[in-house]
């Protein structure tokens, strides 16, 4: 084949087809931006009645009363924060432990299966966690909670606490006394949330720990470090930015986790007086009340919770970027 017969395609033609292709690709990519903008627009317009009626009181008000059409989201914001932060506090050390086990301790034949099991945790649907918590865990908790009503000594504690609770207050001790014996409530929701967010931190932590160069570990070993010292002084500091990213990813998941929490938390907007009481989170209120919300203001208030969750997740995402950037040591990218 001679050079003359195989001429390069016409320059004009090729660049025009390239333009068309690029336009299509960019057009489809702009759908992503469109979804984002439409989300804000939709949520903002439908939450407007609530936000204009209550203003900032919507966030500080402690009363959520559909009967009298008064909506203050304070207690469910607290519910979201308490469940998420406690779940995070318990799950992060466990998740990092499992990541270290896979990357540093486990023999090769065990690392794969354990890693896969942890990834499976993320694949279990929210409703299945809820079902399991409701059918298996709640009755066990209820059994223990019942002792506060059958054991005379414990009943005395319970009665003393109940008096406080009726006044809408609590004490440190009473905070850990169950207020009813149905198993469901804040504690169960937090427990199930803990399990659900474990795999996010765990798999991110495992990935970044595996990326720590071998010579970082060896340099620490060569200085006469024990295995734990290698991990705590060389591996974890090197991987800290990535691990924090995983923690914030898990926090984002926890804030927005809906159905498992909605199924077990008890959907109550009473003031927080006991770790075991029925309570609610922003997401659980959306799931439990949106379908039944008839009045415009009630519906609008539920959607305002959605708007708030939306911005919370955006903030966590932005925070994650800043933290990762600041924690990443100079010289590793």
């Amino acid at each position: 084949m001679s050079q003359a017969t195989k001429r390069p395609p016409g320059r004009g033609l090729s660049s025009r087809s390239d333009d068309v292709f690029r336009t299509v690709i960019i057009g489809l990519s702009l759908v992503i931006a469109l979804i984002f903008i439409l989300s804000i627009y939709q949520l903002a317009t439908v939450s407007w009645p609530t936000l204009s009626t209550f203003g900032l009181d919507f966030y500080t008000g402690r009363t959520w009363d559909p009967v009298n059409d008064v909506y203050g989201a304070f207690s469910m914001i607290i519910g979201t924060l308490v469940t998420s932060l406690i779940a995070l506090a318990i799950s992060v050390p466990l998740a990092i432990a499992s990541a270290l086990f896979i990357a540093e301790y486990s023999p090769k034949w065990l690392a794969g299966p354990v890693g896969y099991l942890i990834e499976l945790l993320a694949a279990v649907p929210s409703v299945v966690y809820g079902l399991w918590a409701l059918v298996v865990i709640a009755p066990k908790l209820a059994e223990w909670q019942l002792t506060y009503f059958t054991d005379p000594a414990k009943l005395e504690t319970y009665s003393a606490c109940q008096e406080l609770w009726l006044q809408g207050t609590s004490s440190f001790q009473c905070f850990f006394v169950p207020s009813a014996a149905d198993g469901r409530g804040l504690a169960l929701a937090t427990l199930i949330l803990t399990v659900m967010i474990l795999p996010y931190t765990a798999s991110v932590a495992r990935d970044v720990i595996n990326l720590v160069p071998r010579d970082q570990r060896e340099a620490m070993y060569a200085l006469g470090a024990t295995k734990w010292e290698v991990i705590s002084k060389a591996v974890l500091p090197y991987a800290r930015a990535g691990i924090m990213g995983g923690v914030l990813l898990a926090l984002g998941r926890a804030l927005g986790e809906t159905l498992a929490v909605a199924m077990v938390i008890g959907d109550s907007q009473a003031p927080l007086t006991s770790l075991w009481q029925n309570f609610s989170t922003m997401a659980s209120v959306i799931a439990n009340q949106f379908g039944d919300a008839q009045q415009e203001l009630h519906r609008s208030s539920v959607l305002a919770l959605g708007l708030t969750l939306f911005f919370m997740s955006v903030i966590v995402n932005v925070l994650a970027r800043i933290v990762i950037k600041r924690l990443t040591p100079e010289g590793i990218k």
Partner: peptide, 16 residues
């Protein structure tokens, strides 16, 4: 190992 030092192929100071 504390009595035997080691220097590696690529410089590997601890980045943090």
């Amino acid at each position: 190992r504390r009595r035997i030092g080691m220097v590696f192929q690529k410089p590997n100071p601890f980045p943090t």
